[in-house]
Structure formats: C-alpha cells, structure tokens
Amino acid sequence: MQTEISKQTGWRLFVRSVIGRAYPRAVGSVRDLNFLFFDVLMPFMATIGYVYVYRALNAPEEYIGFVVLGGAMMSFWANILWSMASQLYWEKENGNLALYIIAPTSLMSILFGMAAGGLIATTVRALAVMILGSLIFQVSYVVTSFWLLFAVFVLTMLALYGMGIMLASLFLLLNREAWHLSSMLQEPIHFLSGFYFPVKALGFWPAALASIIPLTLGMDAMRQLLFAANVDFGFLPVELEVSILAGLSVLYIAAALFMLRYMERLAIRQGKITDRLS
C-alpha cells in the first residue's frame, strides 16, 4: 500500500514550520513539571529578595508593585537570552543545527516558531510570578487603559522577540563566548532597564541609551498604566513610548531578517557554521 504524502510549500510550509517549532516550547515544556520550580519559583525568589529590600527601607507600597512587575518581566529577558539568542549555539553544541539547516524549510520560520512558543510559555510563567507576587505582597493595581496596556505589551514583545531572533543569528558566530555573553547581559540589563526601580532614576541619557532594550520602555509604560496614582516616576509619556516601541519592533524584525540572510550566506561560503569548536 502506498501512503500519499502531501508536500507543503510556500506560506503553508512556513506556517507549519512555525507551529512545529513552537509546539515543543509551548506544550512540551509544560509536560515536565520541573518548570514550576525552575521557571516560576526561581524568578519569584529573586523578586522576593528585592521586595524585602524595599520593605527594609520602608519604601512606599507601589515600589513593591514595581518589583513584582519587574520580576515577571525578567522571565522574558531570560527567555530571550537563554532560549532565543543562545538557542542556535546550543543546537550547534548538540548537533541539531545541521538538521535545521538541511530541513526543507526556512530558518526564519524555525526562529519565528521558537519565538512564538517561547512567548506563550514565558507569558504563562510571567503571569504566574505576577499573580503569586501580587497575592503574597498584596499589590494593588489601578489600570488607566486596558487597551493601551495591551498595546504596550504586544509591541514590547514584538520588539523583544525580534531582537531575540536577531541575536540568535549573531550568536551563531560565537562559541564559548555565547554562554558568557548571555551571562553578562543578564544582571547589567536588569540594572539598565530598571527591572527593580523606575528607569527615570538613572537620568535621561542612561535611560535613553537603555531604551534600545524594548523592556526598558515597555516596563516604564506598563508601570505608568498600572500604578497611575504616581505618574511622575515615568521616563517618557506613554504615547511616546508606544511610538518608540512600534519603531523598535520594525527595526528589530528587519534587522533579524537581514542578519539571518547574512548568516546563511556566510554559512554557505565558509561551510563550517555547524562545527562544534569549543
């Protein structure tokens, strides 16, 4: 008996590749309950530490909310660093990269799938941290505009994951440095992006420089929309931050496409991109 195989091409192939790569991230990762310990409890514990620093300093209660939001958003940055930027490096280490490259689909669809799956799984984790933190520390929110909040979140994620796809291509050029670079981009970005304090406190130019990381403006806008009673901690007006985030989304997605094409050309020319050198 002969089984007929329908071969997908064009956009259908692209979409199926995206879903295929997103599936293990969004669904597969939840099957192993270790994620509750490592991906929810761990960022939550880091968050608690900073909450208690504010408590020890007798800070106003909204600062506890800032830290809880920062702790939740920290999951996205960790996901970008370790599961987007470093992912192709890990695949190279494990020998899967060659399989991705020879697969009859585009690398971009695989990266989009990684981003989509990672975004879904991380949103669940971030929500868990946010709910847990809000309940334990009795954080109260005053949402001024749900639609604007939703728009800020979506644009932040678009820009952030576009940046993640771009970094994945860049990290492919690295060997052991990839691991160290991800480590190095963790805590300094927690500082520069204002995960635990309003980024305005850094001063205009450092905060402006830190705004190349989409989470900086995203978190600042979300804080202004969630804790409206004290709008004076905002770095820029929310509307301006939304516009900049929209610009960053386009910029990073375009840069991701360009970088990936560049890497593919380099791979063909050098023929050693899948070599495990370290």
């Binding site: 900073y50 620093v53 504010y54 300093l57 800070a59 600062y63 995960f195 635990y196 304090f197 406190a201």
Partner: peptide, 9 residues
C-alpha cells in the same frame, strides 16, 4: 541595582 534602589527611596 541596590545603590539606585536605595537612592530612589
């Protein structure tokens, strides 16, 4: 991070 947190408060 701690320096800025302290400064803010």
């Amino acid at each position: 991070i701690l320096v800025v947190m302290y400064m803010v408060i």
